[in-house]
Design a protein around this nucleic acid. Sequence first.
DNA 1: ATAAGTTGTGCAATCGATTGCATAAACTTG
DNA 2: CAAGTTTATGCAATCGATTGCACAACTTAT
Lengths: 341, 341
Amino acid sequence: MKSKKATIHDIAKKLNITASTVSRALKNDPRISKATKKAVTDKANELDYQPNHIASALRSGKSQLIGVVVPIIDRTFFSAVIRGIEEVAYGLNYRVVVSQSNEIVKHEVSTINALLNARVDGIIASLGKNTRDLEHYQNVIDKGVPLVLFDRTTDDLLTNQVIIDDYLGGYMATEHLIKQGYRKIVHFTTVNAVNIYKERCRGYRQALSDYGIPFDEDLVSRGDMQLEDGIQGITKMLEQGIVFDAIFSSSDYAAAGAMQVLKKKGVRIPEDVGVVGFSNEQFTDLTDPPLTSIKQFPMEMGHVAAQLFFDALEHPNKKPHPKKTVLQPELIVRASSLRND
Amino acid sequence: MKSKKATIHDIAKKLNITASTVSRALKNDPRISKATKKAVTDKANELDYQPNHIASALRSGKSQLIGVVVPIIDRTFFSAVIRGIEEVAYGLNYRVVVSQSNEIVKHEVSTINALLNARVDGIIASLGKNTRDLEHYQNVIDKGVPLVLFDRTTDDLLTNQVIIDDYLGGYMATEHLIKQGYRKIVHFTTVNAVNIYKERCRGYRQALSDYGIPFDEDLVSRGDMQLEDGIQGITKMLEQGIVFDAIFSSSDYAAAGAMQVLKKKGVRIPEDVGVVGFSNEQFTDLTDPPLTSIKQFPMEMGHVAAQLFFDALEHPNKKPHPKKTVLQPELIVRASSLRND
DNA sequence: ATAAGTTGTGCAATCGATTGCATAAACTTG
DNA sequence: CAAGTTTATGCAATCGATTGCACAACTTAT
């Protein structure tokens, strides 16, 4: 069973024609006669011919690979985006190579370089939390390799982007709480200045302002957005005696952490405190009470990112205004913020 | 800024030597003099030479790619395994191509073929739920491409495997419930005959037997192990008036679903009913009460899988007894099963 | 019937790195 | 010092597909 793989030369030999003709026949080149094409494809099937992508990659300079770089793979959000990218890519006979930076800048740099090295045809990436220096991405652009950024992006690179309207998400979350009658709304956000969190915060402030509620810096807690940060953030507020009646957390994890603390203290959710998270993680259905959150449509984001990538691939040297696609988030109301007043 | 990439020929030309010498110098071939090696590496740095993997893949027949096939990427378990594989692979200068079958047999088949087609050096895979026919995997083996199966495996293929001791996991979970004083233990398992669920069930039955508790088929609920299946499974039992005081679910999701129903009915957890899940998903900390579960060490599983892969790579034609590595799971006790009696 | 165009294939170079074999130069050794 | 070794490098083919150019065989137009 270990027959060598058939090549176009094998096909050519059997048919007494040359490899070039076979190659053209398989690519449906108009210069080849119908009869020859049929003979070639028949013989190809007979020999179970599988084109060697590596050879054609070498010759054509195209690897049919897209490199995808994400901070971390085991978040519903990122893996769903990847799935979205894959769906589009596979349909166009491209493969996807996924790498994680694990939020470590050094990894991000080396992984980007490794991908360039592997001659991927382009890169789709989301920035790490701590990424300040963008040289490695600039390098990608300079080499003429198509680059698409999604979600955690930056405007400091002239390249295509897909983002969620995080501002709107923050606004919707906050407005929802206000309409439910909450007034003193805590906000969990990050210490670092990642675009998405800044935008969510901006939405929060705008909603407050629109409803005539003064912004209070004391109500803002800054952390790393993990479960633990939510626990500590809310604990500190309680200790400091800060009065609040709701939480809008830019992360579902931190929101869940805060809920745990509050419940342990006997604070009722949503009666005493309403809670809204962000991202609509899988577990938002499973907390008690279920957590209201902002849904982001990550699959669609993947689709769009891949689409932008293929667009860029088709117009290599043409670098007009990079496109920025903004997707709309959606508020998913669950019990954690539903006060029956 | 768009200078062509340097090749070994460029280096050779500049140094008045041939490409073969450059190639050997870079690979640290002992036949090349130290002086030449230094000159070559210096010049390589100067020109920012990056080896073209595609060219060497073509020549050597090695793509430096590992294909990984998983049923679904956005499960903590699978993404952690992938991360484990990546860690090992990257250290050895291999890249990982991840594909999802989405539990669809047709996708699994086509993705396997696509990977073979892309000339990956080997495949690491976990079977889809509904995969019965193993021809596509047999095909991989027949072509002499190293294959490692993990978690959802089969003994019908002569190839390396890494699995968790699911039997032990099932046993530990059940024994724990028994020791907490629960006697009538419901078990959630699958309809299909995937190895891991069968083993967990076997552990469940053995533990019952060891503690002198008769096995009762009425207490077994078979479904697809999603949240919804847990909801329906337990609802049906309640309707049928089946008496139980604990649940061991082979899936955290189904366990969470059951908890939701029980709480809504006013059943107290863990006082009235104890619950144990399986997989230690991220959300197990977040349910109310937190869910006791079986931890699987997926990163380590990834490490081992990659290790087995590289072993197989080094001994190509040598096919002795395929190795089967079994990892130990761990019981993580949380409030859902802690009855203070 | 001859010039001009069309059609279908073949030839050979190319992508970049690798490698078996050959060979020149330098070095040993009896 | 001749013969054998070792050392360092070059030559040229190879991996498999692609592609610009050439060209033979026909067809059409004048």
